[in-house]
Amino acid sequence: MIRLSNVQKTYAARRGSDEHIALRGINLDIAAGEIVGVIGRSGAGKSTLIRCINLLETPTSGTVTVDDTDVTRLSKRDLPLFRRQLGMVFQHFNLLSSRTVYDNIALPLELAGASKAEIAAAVDPLLPLVGLEDKRDRYPAELSGGQKQRVGIARALSSNPKVLLCDEVTSALDPETTRQILTLLKDINKRLGLTMVVITHEMAVVKALCDRVAVMDGGVIVEEGGVEGIFADPKHATTQSLLADEFMDFRAGSEGNNNTGAASAQTAGQEG
């Protein structure tokens, strides 16, 4: 479905900053219907990686193949058409404040030139799917963070994409809302058979959502495999430290409520 082959991304040196290599030869294969997590710390290159899939970032070298098409060779004219096959959900939702819930979800269809009837046919069933029937004509300013992200997800689905790209989609949400959004994404994956690429810095998200995970550090994938295997036997130091963070996060977050490491681990699993 999606194949990244030896993808490199270098940001040229500018006044005030040296040349920065964000991706150093990424190879990643993502099968249709699979949920693949990409985890790493800030600056590991995971956001650049996901943006190379829909060409928001152009790889400096290497190829990105989606459905047997080398998308790095697409012309400026064809690129928007290709992007309509991929939905993207963002950490900060990126909803238009001037549009209602309905009109935000309709935007990708509007951009593609769909008629009012086609838009209604696509958007109306999405509202109950994400649980926002009663918010149809509300503006984003009237919604909670979790509701905004549901709009973001519905918007990404409205053009009926084959792939959903999720960029830190739960990082701005509280643990309970995070759990709900992850459940929703899992449900969507099952119902629609969507391929998903999930960028996160939280192991709990990977554990709750993903089939496979790639661990990134310094622009390379340092470890990759099935989620269970990685959790049971983390080999690389980065993976181990990301797993250790889960305990740290909850010790800091639960303000002395944790008693033992085992109790924290259990909480981490539930909230993820």
Partner: peptide, 28 residues
């Protein structure tokens, strides 16, 4: 917010559409 431009591009908006559908309404 530049995130809105990015979101519109990810949806397949052409540059002119980014202006008419996102930038002008949001800046109104």
């Amino acid at each position: 917010d530049s995130g809105l431009i990015e979101a519109a591009q990810a949806m397949g908006a052409r540059p002119v559409q980014v202006v008419t559908k996102v930038l002008l309404p949001e800046a109104l």
